[in-house]
């Protein structure tokens, strides 16, 4: 049942942090070990420095995510190399990513942690972009879902039925906050529009301010990442001041499923079909799915520079490595 205690009071089960880190480190090692210089050095990273470019400032979620995996890499790679994190912020991650594309050598000593905004800058054709993420070599992706919720007193009072609540939002357009149209919010704004919710959007509002604005009643509906759910959303639902409407969903084995962190809450495509009686299709689906991939499935991705060998079996130490011979 939607809104059950099982969901609302859920304490996210303690997964094995160290095992997750070890998997990540192992994935990285597969690539780093394939690099010419390090293969010749018998995979001893002692005394080596490996640089992780973080194209964001030191205070945000992407920085925290990258530093989490740094711990695993440092402890797992042979010789325990020093992973040096370099934050180069600016231009919504464009500055640091441009620099990485221009300067990082494909020798296993450099990688980058990109986020949704880095991808959006490219696919929305920002003229400042000088990188092509399709040429980088990804080795770890950390998905992250999103959830939409509204004040319980919105539109005369919401119920425990998310479909009924969404119909109320369609009939009573809420005021919501957003950062910019070209931020990862674009997928959420498109989702609202496809559902027939035509909100009044106040742009230029950050996450913290929009949370506070909802609690004060200035905004009636908002979206957040699932990483903020436990701290920022669940308490409001538990005290009865907010209702969950839908998530963006999660893709598992090529199939759209409910977000594993709130499995009682329907996902966008379910909700769309429930309201309109048929699945979302056509270019609307194609565009939505692309933005879903950016916001949810590729929320944070660790990548090596273009040209880094993909498999050690294809590696020949004295052979010049190019994209054509390493894929």
């Amino acid at each position: 049942m939607f809104g059950s205690k099982r969901t609302l009071g859920r304490q996210f089960p303690a997964r094995s942090t160290l095992s997750a880190l070890a998997v990540a480190a192992g994935a990285a090692l597969t690539f780093i070990a394939a690099s010419p210089a390090l293969a010749q050095a018998d995979l001893d990273f002692a005394g080596e420095e490996i640089e992780l470019m973080v194209p964001y400032g030191p205070g945000g979620g992407s920085n925290t995510h990258n530093r989490l995996f740094v711990l695993g890499l440092q402890q797992t790679l042979p010789g325990q190399p020093t992973i040096v994190v370099r934050n180069v912020e600016g231009g919504g991650s464009i500055t640091g990513t441009n620099e990485f594309a221009a300067r990082a050598e494909p020798d296993g000593r450099a990688f980058i942690g990109v986020g949704s905004s880095t991808i959006l800058n490219q696919i929305l054709r920002d003229p400042s972009v000088r990188y092509d993420l399709g040429e980088f070599i990804p080795f770890l992706s950390s998905p992250g879902g999103s959830i939409v919720y509204a004040r319980s007193d919105f539109a005369g009072g919401l119920t425990d039925d998310p479909i009924e609540n969404i119909r109320k939002a369609i009939e009573n357009p809420p005021t919501i906050a957003s950062q910019t149209i070209t931020s990862s919010d674009i997928g959420m704004l498109l989702s609202y529009d496809l559902l027939g919710i035509k909100p009044k959007v106040v742009f230029g509002i950050g996450l913290g301010e929009s949370r506070a604005g909802l609690e004060r009643g200035e905004f009636q509906m908002r979206h957040d990442t699932m990483f903020s759910y436990g701290d920022a959303v669940a308490p409001l639902v538990e005290e009865g001041s907010a209702k969950l409407l839908f998530t963006m969903g999660y893709e598992e084995n090529g199939e759209m499923v409910r977000d594993p962190m709130v499995p009682d809450v329907p996902h966008f495509l379910e909700v769309y079909e429930a309201i309109y009686g048929e699945p979302l299709s056509g270019i609307e689906y194609d565009v939505w799915k692309s933005l879903f991939n950016v916001r949810v499935m590729a929320g944070k991705v660790l990548m090596l520079p273009a040209g880094t060998p993909r498999k050690s079996s294809r590696f020949t130490p004295r052979r010049r490595v190019t994209r054509s011979n390493c894929r």
């Binding site: 996210f12 089960p13 997964r15 997750a20 998997v23 990540a24 192992g26 994935a27 597969t30 690539f31 979620g61 925290t64 995510h65 989490l68 993420l133 399709g134 980088f136 070599i137 990804p138 080795f139 770890l140 992706s141 950390s142 998905p143 992250g144 879902g145 699932m226 990483f227 436990g230 701290d231 999660y250 594993p260 962190m261 991939n293 499935m297 590729a298 991705v301 993909r310 498999k311």
Partner: peptide
């Protein structure tokens, strides 16, 4: 709070599909 309940996707094939 950083990785949630989501499986971490690793390896060239799986991560390339996501990208």
């Amino acid at each position: 709070l950083i990785i949630g309940d989501y499986p971490q996707v690793t390896g060239a094939e799986a991560t390339s599909r996501i990208m």
